[in-house]
Design a protein around this nucleic acid. Sequence first.
DNA 1: AATGCCTCCAACCGCAAGTAA
DNA 2: TTTACTTGCGGTTGGAGGCAT
Length: 251
Amino acid sequence: MGRQPCCEKVGLKKGPWTPEEDRKLATFILTNGQCCWRAVPKLAGLLRCGKSCRLRWTNYLRPDLKRGLLSEYEEKMVIDLHAQLGNRWSKIASHLPGRTDNEIKNHWNTHIKKKLKKMGIDPLTHKSLPTTTTTTEREEPSSRDEPEEEAAAAMAAETSLQSTVTEDKIPFDSMEMDNNFCIEQVPIIESHEILDSFINPSSPSTSYDGSSSNVLEDLQFLPNLDWEYDHNSIMSIWDHDDFSILNFLIN
DNA sequence: AATGCCTCCAACCGCAAGTAA
DNA sequence: TTTACTTGCGGTTGGAGGCAT
């Protein structure tokens, strides 16, 4: 028998998520936690398939995500881990707190791959490309946005980095740092953690315009939930337990 | 200013793996 | 063991925005 689609596709919305859809999904997850994704769109009142909801949450709405470009340090980590693990993006992501497999995969394909090629390193094997490599074999000629000096410096950095890589040991395991974060270990996020990240101004913003200080503002969460509270009011209820906070959110 | 090309990344697709009955 | 279903993963695509001409 053929594989069934993940959901009834007829009448389902595709493409970019709207702030309203984000708000509905986030509200649902806040209220119910992460449960059966297949049921989420129906229960949350979304015309999306469960898969799309899961992806949106894990790649974008999840409050523990970092935003912005990978730091130089994170980039080195990715290169190191890729040398060890290959294209196992989720495994690589599990070593980088707050980063998703999709984000790392995109960054690899758009930035790191090119960088390595310019440095004369094969991004697949992490070994030096043959010196006879022609321009047609490379994806692009040396370009306007990366001067030779920068490439040389990056090469030097990479060389020192590679010296730390061994066959059987990943040189740095970020799970040991900070809060022992690991993506694979956070299927359920406590409501207070979600709220904390939403409310904390240092939390990531969405891509709508990046101008506001938190996701709630970006999603226009407050007005749509008929909240009569401003940011300070939310902070003032912070000492309450989870249940009362959820009631506050829902009612 | 208009047009075309390029880059980036959010989101989709299909398959694999895991799990329950 | 088989079947049906859910979730996770990696490859790919499409569109928005930036840049060059």
